[in-house]
């Protein structure tokens, strides 16, 4: 399969870019319409597949990136031995989940949902750039507000915050008072494990 000019332009742009490129950006740089860019992306990925490349174009954090196939994860990881941070702890993941859905939010709000003090988890997440301080709440004490970052989206392969799992359901849940919750039989649904 011989790739056309547009597909190769898209490939070059995505390869060289330091941030994920959105369809709009690709349209702007190539001077093409959205449909032709989308199709060019499909042709590129097909070419990668056909020729059994270890690369693939993925959509993450609102844009496209060239990435290695996950089958090569362990071999590639050798490049970053000692530099790549470990996986996040359960406390960090829970804290991050709360922040992701209720951002911007205060430490108090996170603590009250998790029922424990989340100081150290917040510190870890800040250090790993998963979250950032996005301002202060204009209430007594002016507590800091935390929001998630682009690094967070990329780390979990999310396109944007709307792609968080069950985002509408949880947004609704967060606004509910205890009596409203009583009316809906919420505890029955989604029984895990």
């Amino acid at each position: 399969m011989i790739l056309d000019r547009l597909a190769r332009e898209v490939e070059a742009l995505i390869f060289a870019s330091d941030t994920p490129l959105s369809v709009e950006q690709l349209c702007e740089y190539t001077g093409s319409g959205e449909d032709s860019v989308q199709q060019a992306l499909d042709r590129l990925n097909n070419a990668f597949l056909d020729q059994q490349h270890a690369l693939i174009i993925i959509e993450v954090a609102g844009g496209f990136r060239i990435a290695t196939d996950k089958d090569f994860g362990s071999i590639v990881s050798q490049l970053f031995e000692g530099r790549k941070p470990g996986k996040l702890s359960r406390a960090s993941l829970e804290t991050l989940a709360v922040i992701a859905y209720s951002q911007p939010c205060t430490r108090m709000a996170i603590d009250s949902i998790r029922g424990v003090n989340c100081d150290s988890a917040i510190r870890t997440l800040l250090e790993r750039d998963m979250i950032r301080i996005s301002g202060r709440m204009e209430t007594p004490g002016r507590p800091l507000l935390y929001s998630t970052t682009r690094v967070f989206l990329e780390y979990f392969g999310l396109n944007d915050l709307d792609h968080l799992p069950r985002s509408e359901e949880i947004a609704e849940l967060l606004c509910m008072s205890s009596s409203e919750m009583e009316e809906k039989d919420l505890f029955g649904v989604a029984d895990e494990e």
């Binding site: 990136r65 060239i66 290695t68 993941l93 991050l96 989940a97």
Partner: peptide, 18 residues
Amino acid sequence: IAKELHRSEETWTDIYTS
């Protein structure tokens, strides 16, 4: 949700971008 994030982390930890 934290569990789901953990699953995504597992998947994405093996994917390296340019």
